[in-house]
Design a protein around this nucleic acid. Sequence first.
DNA 1: TCTTCTCGCACATTTGAATGGT
DNA 2: AACCATTCAAATGTGCGAGAAG
Length: 364
Amino acid sequence: MLDENNLFQQAAVASSAYASMAAFTAAANMYSSFYPTTTNPDPNHYLGCNEMQRERLDPKVRVKLEGLDLWKQFHSLGTEMIITKNGRRLFPTFRVSVSELDPNMKYMFLLDIVPVDDNRYKYQESAWVISGKAEPHAYGRYFIHPDSPQTGEQWMKQSILFNKAKITNNPMQNPDQILLNSMHRYVIRLHIVQASDEYSIRTGPLSTYTFNETVFIAVTAYQNDEIKNLKIDNNPFAKGFREPTHGKKNSSKALKRLQSSLPLDKSTKYDETHHRLCKSDTSLLSSNSISPPIHQPIVDSTYGHPEPEADPTNFNFSSTYQQPLAYNAYSNDSSLMYNPYIGSTMSFSPYGYYSSNNFSAPFF
DNA sequence: TCTTCTCGCACATTTGAATGGT
DNA sequence: AACCATTCAAATGTGCGAGAAG
């Protein structure tokens, strides 16, 4: 049996903070390689940490998902994220703001992505349908925010951007890239650890936040044209595929540079709140009765936004995440949804889903 | 035959070094 | 010398489409 303490001691002795984080991630990733998730997807099961009790952060701590409008647009269509061998960034970018941290304490921010259910999907007749049982998920891959660790005061100064986080389908890829399976459904999680130094990463108070709007299906090529068009319209790197300019090869580089340097263009480049509006969300929803509940209902993760009206065509949407401990992920009934917080109670806050679990989901 | 994945391509932004002006 | 703005090229991030793989 592997001595888990030794693995994490490797992280603890690293000289610089950043190096220690890398070692820590490597240690966590070694776990997943030693304990492959071939039979039981519950990380507690193969880590043997069911007994571990983990203190939570102050419940007053609030995390708000930024760019919520754009996330909701994607979510209403069934978000797809491209995964590649070399790793692909998430779009929309995962960005949060946090409040009520202790300004003087140090924290680390980590992101990971976990399966939402135990199904594999395929895109058939303009709808996602279950095509079989899911492949095992490689738990233990985290993206650690490069500013970690820093004080609560610094984290709360501005929104926290995870634009460098990448997803891949290549197990041999850099361990800080999150390994996913194509045609599987996932949700993004944020972990905040109070860690004043590298020794307290595993023991410091921890809270985990999940946002319903970040549920997506990993794909190697876009299936839904509406999703593709929404990406093209909103992702600055995909500007070349927008209608007016796409296919033109006669514009000189100098002209392009001039155009791109126009003040208006620059000022709106990364402003997600000014993205172009697309078609009405509800008009694009699938009402295919054979579709599984691919999308969660849109539940506000941001304080101060009214909850949208219920869509009568959207009868298949479940309310999984609003129910405390509604499903057993590891039962034999594959129709049940996977709750990554199994064993815990889960409550919803206006800022996001908050796990009250003391020990289970993240294993660091 | 069908579905899914990979790769090279064109077009875009980002980044950082080099340059010039104050 | 130090600072700032601009220019430029390389690196990187996109989706497309053809073809490969299973």
